[in-house]
Design a protein around this nucleic acid. Structure first.
Lengths: 162, 162
DNA sequence: CAAATAGTTTAGCCTTGGCTAACAATGATA
DNA sequence: TATCATTGTTAGCCAAGGCTAAACTATTTG
């Protein structure tokens, strides 16, 4: 039935020089998309936690209003999100008071920040202009595996050690 | 969470040497997040269209069942999505028949495919292993600006011309 | 210290993108 | 040709992440 399987299709448009042309085997292909879907679920969470960590570090505290303006989102949305972060054990908050990260939240914030920094520095080291690099980094950071991250780090090191 | 994970992270420390540490100005910061949110809206659409294009090219036709197994998603979900693509003028479909891309759909498929390929080749040229590169590329492709894309292309060219 | 302003939360709505279950059409084949 | 497996569609559910409007709390200030 579903075993149309991988028909051996010789790269019809051979002009493109590579092995990436053929469709991946079904199972693998599905797993790729699944990975992306999963990343999407955690992405926003990580962005919030990272931002909260940054605000605490640079401003001394994280207030819902600041999060809202920095995220470009309504305060109501932030409030709802904070409830979720609370349920997930990432922040603690008393009503009408400012937020704190739990231990787990702090770990997540640090990891996210580190990843973000590597991607951003990498893009700049590659030659991407600062403004673009920031935007791209914000989107890319959640989709870069640790393997790729460490290769990026190596690239940065080589580049700057020169 | 991320399944393809292992390496240690002694790295972040070294990256404290820069201007990226301070929070960006509020407006700019908000615009970064907005860009990501917008990307999210088109991402899935592009993935479907790209996949449909690939199926047509490699298999001669795109059937809902194949899309479902490749995406790792139920047929009902695909069916619903196809209706949306239809409304957006990206595909044409008669019930119970296989799909075709409109002209606009084809353009989108080509663009997506090209972007995807560049990112994938770039990662491989960087030294990322094929399997990881595929997964990362799938997630990253929608967040890479044209500027970065062309820098990646240049990098590939230099790398392979050696 | 009371009133105004600023900040936070809640209620209720909307859209997306998943799902399952039930039903409908197609096409192979007995 | 009648049956049945495969494929496609529809209905109806759910959670997430937006929004606005209204209610509530905290803080500033007259």
């Amino acid at each position: 039935m579903s075993d149309h399987d991988q028909s051996p299709h010789l790269t019809a448009s051979s002009s493109n020089s590579n092995s990436g042309d053929a469709l991946p085997p079904v199972g693998e292909h599905a797993r790729q998309y699944e990975t992306v879907r999963n990343a999407h679920e955690t992405e926003l969470i990580e962005d919030y936690v990272e931002l909260i960590g940054d605000l605490i570090q640079h401003r001394g505290e994280a207030r819902a209003a600041d999060i809202a303006t920095r995220m470009g989102v309504s305060q109501a949305t932030v409030s709802k999100m904070i409830r979720r972060l609370n349920e997930l054990g990432l922040v603690t908050s008393k009503p009408y008071r400012s937020l704190f990260l739990t231990e787990e939240g702090q770990k997540m914030a640090e990891t996210s920040r580190a990843r973000h920094d590597i991607v951003l520095h990498f893009l700049r080291a590659l030659g991407v202009n600062d403004h673009t690099a920031r935007i791209d980094a914000e989107g890319m950071e959640h989709h870069v595996s640790n393997e790729t991250l460490s290769i990026m780090q190596r690239f940065i090191d080589e580049q700057t050690r020169r």
